[in-house]
Design a protein around this nucleic acid. Sequence first.
DNA 1: GTAAACCCTAGAGTATAGTCTAGGGTCAAG
DNA 2: CTTGACCCTAGACTATACTCTAGGGTTTAC
Lengths: 136, 136
Amino acid sequence: MTLKIGELAALSKVSRDTLRFYEKHGLITPSARNASGYRLYSDADVHRISFIISAKEVGFTLNEIHQLLKLEVTKDEKSCQDVKQFVDDKIAVVNQRLAEIKRIKTSLQTLSNACCGGDKPATHCTILEALSDQTN
Amino acid sequence: MTLKIGELAALSKVSRDTLRFYEKHGLITPSARNASGYRLYSDADVHRISFIISAKEVGFTLNEIHQLLKLEVTKDEKSCQDVKQFVDDKIAVVNQRLAEIKRIKTSLQTLSNACCGGDKPATHCTILEALSDQTN
DNA sequence: GTAAACCCTAGAGTATAGTCTAGGGTCAAG
DNA sequence: CTTGACCCTAGACTATACTCTAGGGTTTAC
Ligand SMILES: [Zn+2]
Ligand SMILES: [Zn+2]
Ligand SMILES: [Zn+2]
Ligand SMILES: [Zn+2]
């Protein structure tokens, strides 16, 4: 079974452009072209794009998916340790981002809580004051 | 007291380039130039860059800081309600990002937990399997 | 009086992840 | 045999927030 780009796009719920973009960046190359140069995707290709999409959904960047695909393709030379390590490294990065966003949320919440929210002029607003404060 | 760009940069711990970049994007314009065209920053300018930096630290984008500066400058025409609403809107956005990152973290954690992490070939690796799974 | 350190502008480059456009070829249906 | 839906390429454009480069002018210290 082979699919043309539009068919694979519909199946995978990504755009044709995205498939071509992934190809340009070495993530997936159709296993064949027809006489007119149309891309033809095989079952293996469908499998691969599915892998890419799943990996995106769990938060890997395209660059990381690149690495993951290498692991996947050479999985008989790699160990579970290698794969797990890769995921754990990503978890560490995600945890950092999480901490940063939590910090931001807390800061904003503190700002908001201090403001009276009334309809009088904001000349006395604690939010604007706090942002203007030269504590740096 | 007036400062040249390098002095303000050192004081504010941002780069000269960043100051010029902010200027190009309408965030801060030095109140004067000397005869040679050098930027000269006043106390008010220092105050303004401090506002910008504080706002960045609590997670506002440059675009949002633009809006905030408008609120700050016209604070006698604006109410606390306006300012608080602005912050609360941002909190809502941050909460969404937080939820998304938590989702990602959970997914990654689930993947990692299922993998044995051993040193045998990853041909049986549950992580690679899960990512390959065509449930879409 | 010259060299280092600083300033200027305009514009290109970086990273991320696509989306869109122009200009043209291909294929199936009626 | 033509119309619409599809395919191709190359390259520009989006958003975000800078950073760097090239090619000059200025200031300051020795
Ligand atoms: Zn108030
Ligand atoms: Zn207020
Ligand atoms: Zn294992
Ligand atoms: Zn495993």
